[in-house]
Amino acid sequence: MADLQDDLHPAAEAGRADEPYPQEAVVVGPETYEPVSDPDDTPLTRARAVLAAHPVADGYSGLAGALRRLPWYDLDVGENAVDTDVPRLRKGQVGALFWALHLTEGQDGDRAVGATLEQLDLAKTVVAAHDEGLRPARTAGEVADARNCGRVAVLFGPAGAAALGDSLSVLRSLHLLGLRVLTLTGTSWAGAAGLTRFGEEVVREMNRVGLVADLSGASAPTIRRALALSKAPVLFTRSAARTLRPHPANLPDDLLGEVGEAKGLCLVPLTAEQAGPSVRDVADHLDHIRTLAGPECVGLSGTYDTGSAHPQELHDTSCYPRLIAELLRRGWEESDVALLTWGNVQRVLRGADFTAHAAQQRRPPSTATIADLDR
Rank of each mutant, 00 (worst) to 15 (best):
Q346S: 12
Q346I: 13
Q346D: 08
Q346A: 12
Q346E: 12
R347Y: 12
R347C: 12
R347M: 14
R347G: 13
R347Q: 14
R347L: 15
V348K: 05
L349F: 13
L349M: 15
R350T: 12
R350G: 05
R350N: 15
G351C: 11
G351L: 07
G351K: 09
G351D: 08
G351S: 13
D353Y: 04
D353A: 15
F354V: 15
F354C: 11
F354K: 14
T355D: 07
T355K: 05
T355S: 10
T355R: 11
A356L: 09
A356N: 07
H357E: 14
H357C: 11
A358N: 07
A358L: 14
A358W: 10
A358F: 09
A358K: 10
A359S: 12
A359P: 00
A359I: 01
A359H: 09
Q360E: 07
Q360A: 06
Q361L: 12
R362F: 05
R362P: 03
R362Q: 13
R362A: 14
R363E: 10
R363T: 10
R363M: 05
R363F: 06
P364K: 12
P364H: 09
P364G: 15
P364C: 10
P365R: 11
P365W: 10
P365L: 04
P365M: 01
P365S: 08
S366H: 06
S366E: 03
S366W: 01
T367L: 11
A368T: 03
A368C: 05
A368W: 02
T369W: 00
I370P: 02
I370D: 03
I370N: 00
A371K: 07
A371P: 01
D372E: 11
D372I: 02
L373G: 00
L373C: 00
D374M: 02
D374L: 01
D374F: 02
R375S: 08
R375T: 06
R375G: 10
